[in-house]
Amino acid sequence: MVQSSNQGGLGIRISQIPSEVESLPNSGIYIVTRLLPSTTHTQRLEVSNSTTKPMHVLIYPGPAKLVDGNFLPLAQGSKSELVSWSSVSPSSIDLPPMKSSEVTVTIKVPAEVSPGTDFGVIWAAVASTPSASGVVSINRVGIRMYTPVGTTTTSSTPPPVSSGHSHTSEFQWLVIGILAFAVCALAYRELPFVKKQRKERRRALKKLERR
């Protein structure tokens, strides 16, 4: 059992979380930066080789979509605005055994954007040596991108974590208001000069009745 987890491979992780998204859920495992028009965002990732052999790694952005809440990568070449704005530097690395290296993802957002949430993946890929007949097997591992575009949209996924503090509803304020009014009214009745006035009124009424 230990053997399989110790086999090693090609790994990827976020090595630096941009401060503006630090408080967002999943900012440590996905790219979740809000993309405003005419801005440029950079984020550092770390690609690692945990095997005992050297590895040639290609790093590139790829398109993805969300279908019924499931995140699905799309075939290379599928149309994606996010992918056309994204680049990775360096785009290929030769990693010695047991070494890791940082890459920088740059997202250049144009002036004209349509608001929404864009999905993509930054892939790190390693290929097998081609077989005699030229068959190649590629394994790739990626960091998902869930990026809200523009100012109005909210990030649809990852789901926000419940913040814990409750908000007082309008109904609750109405009840509080009525109670406060009742307390004030009762207190007013008990004021000395109000009591005196009431007594005098009662006396005057009795006088009238006697007549």
């Binding site: 110790n6 491979g9 690692s48 890791s100 097998s128 097997s137 394994n139 790739r140």
Partner: peptide, 17 residues
């Protein structure tokens, strides 16, 4: 090889087939 670095997602290297 020791386990892959903390905080990462890792896939094994493909074998020639």
């Amino acid at each position: 090889a020791p386990p892959p670095p903390a905080g990462s997602l890792t896939i094994s290297v493909p074998a020639t087939f």
